[in-house]
Amino acid sequence: MRIIDGLRERVKEEKPADEEAVKRLLREEIAALLRPVASPLAQNRDGLTAMLIVGVNGAGKTTTIGKLAHRFRSQGKKVIIGAADTFRAAAIEQLQVWGDRTGATVIAQQAGADPAAVAFDAAQAAQARGADVLMVDTAGRLQTRSNLMEELSKVHRVLVNQLGRPLDEVLLVLDATTGQNGLSQARLFREAVPVSGIALTKLDGTAKGGVIVAIAEELKVPVKLVGVGEQVDDLQDFDPEAFAEALLA
């Protein structure tokens, strides 16, 4: 563990006076490890910002999209959402409710449709209507299901082909209550699609999302967003100092 090594070094050098001081050093070490991976959401300033949202079942993908839609809409942007979770019952309806609430346009087909086809439609619609933001929702899938991960690769491929360029963000939504399994999620999702960032959800509980430290250390995937509540504006940019503080609280 790099953190412990770093801490040991600094304890030797600085000879902290008490427990509080050691804690402060540890906090700084963790923040230092996280700082390089903290980055804001990418934006394409001259045109369409295209995002694909992925994650395991129940991580909070659809809710995160809803909150993001709210954020972009309040900035006056034109938002299109692709409902490519065609598997789970009523996933499309759930997105449509978010569409109504935020004024984002939801592109959907019927349940059971090919998710790649929905993604294609959504990308085409976003281009044709001159949207500012495109978000494509996908069905939750466990990272060990190789056939479903292949399906995800295909959705990504179709989007890239239609847009003729890489996506601006491929966001992995990660539940903060997840334990060390989060590392496996990050690793395997990254094998299927080029994950560009993590949205850490459900941080308002007692879970602290410590696995993010392991992910930052091993995989260097940037952390972009944290979800801290049920309200539409409870989605914040990731702040390593505040996170390290809360982790050790």
Binding site: G66, R88, A89, A90, A91, E93, Q94, Q96, V97, W98, R101, A111, E230
Partner: peptide, 16 residues
């Protein structure tokens, strides 16, 4: 009654 479309989700499952 809170999550959007949760009722609908259960109805779809019930039907299946």
């Amino acid at each position: 009654v809170y999550r959007p479309a949760a009722v609908k989700q259960l109805q779809v499952l019930g039907e299946q």
